[in-house]
């Protein structure tokens, strides 16, 4: 037929079939190549891990402020509840005392977090040796990096940072998950617990900067567990 005309409920004219079938196959093949290319080009999610199939325990001193954490003789372990909730309320009765924290472990670049087990099994009072006096060092700094919610970033979500994660991160921070400021300094990724300039938990005025590349000016407190970044000012970076 020299002048093929397609009507849906009749068989397709052979001339049109010869034209369209190869095109359809090429379109599907291009779609598959596109799928592979898009998947291949994704940003690596980072080395965060969450072994939620095994519970582990750590002994140390409970610290409720500014965020719930456990200070062992060798490291600081952030503590959170299931979901997008911090563990401060549960930790407060133990604040400053020895405690055994049990839960599932999240870890990224050596930064550890426990999602506490339900009920009394999560926190148990124990006797521990008192902490030796440690001297804090405060240094004024300006850092470029990203403000993240620690639970997702350390492994609960992969990836757990960036603009697409911003809404989730804000929900986490509102629920009491400790915020971390992640910045590359001298080629090494640093993880700093972020507080306001007075060392109090960050509030809503800082949440709008979560998940974006920002420049932070403040005081870096080191020498006693996880470094704390007291934020004086924050602005978006180019």
């Amino acid at each position: 037929m020299n002048d093929p005309h397609f009507i849906g409920w009749f068989p397709m004219p052979p001339a049109l079939r010869r034209f369209l079938l190869p095109l359809a196959l090429v379109a599907v093949a291009l779609g598959l190549i596109l799928a592979g290319g898009l998947a291949y080009s994704q940003r690596p999610p980072g080395p965060g891990r969450w072994d939620d199939s095994h519970e582990v325990s750590f002994d140390g001193i409970a610290v409720a402020e500014p965020y719930a954490m456990l200070r062992t003789p060798t490291e600081t372990i952030l503590l959170v509840e299931a979901g997008k909730f911090g563990a401060k309320d549960r930790l407060l009765p133990f604040d400053g005392n020895g405690v055994r924290a049990t839960g599932t472990l999240l870890e990224r670049d050596g930064v550890k977090m426990l999602e506490l087990a339900d009920g009394d099994a999560g926190l148990q009072a124990i006797e521990v040796k008192a902490e030796s006096a440690l001297e804090e060092v405060t240094t004024p700094v300006t850092l470029v990096g990203e403000l993240v919610d620690s639970k997702c970033y350390l492994g609960a979500m992969k990836p757990g940072g960036g603009k697409t994660h911003k809404g989730c991160a804000i929900l986490c921070l509102r629920g009491g998950i400790p915020p971390l400021f992640v910045a590359k300094v001298d080629g090494t990724v640093g993880y700093y617990l972020a507080t306001d300039s007075h060392g109090r938990p960050l509030g809503e005025d800082h949440f709008e900067f979560v998940g974006e590349r920002v420049t932070v000016t403040g005081q870096l407190v080191t020498g006693r567990g996880r470094p704390i970044l007291k934020i004086d000012s924050v602005r978006r970076s180019r």
């Binding site: 799928a35 592979g36 898009l38 998947a39 994704q42 999610p45 080395p47 992969k158």
Partner: peptide
């Protein structure tokens, strides 16, 4: 294809 490539590409650090 998207799921297969996306699952394999980063090994242990998968999305």
């Amino acid at each position: 294809v998207f799921l297969a490539v996306g699952s394999l590409i980063f090994g242990d650090e998968a999305i």
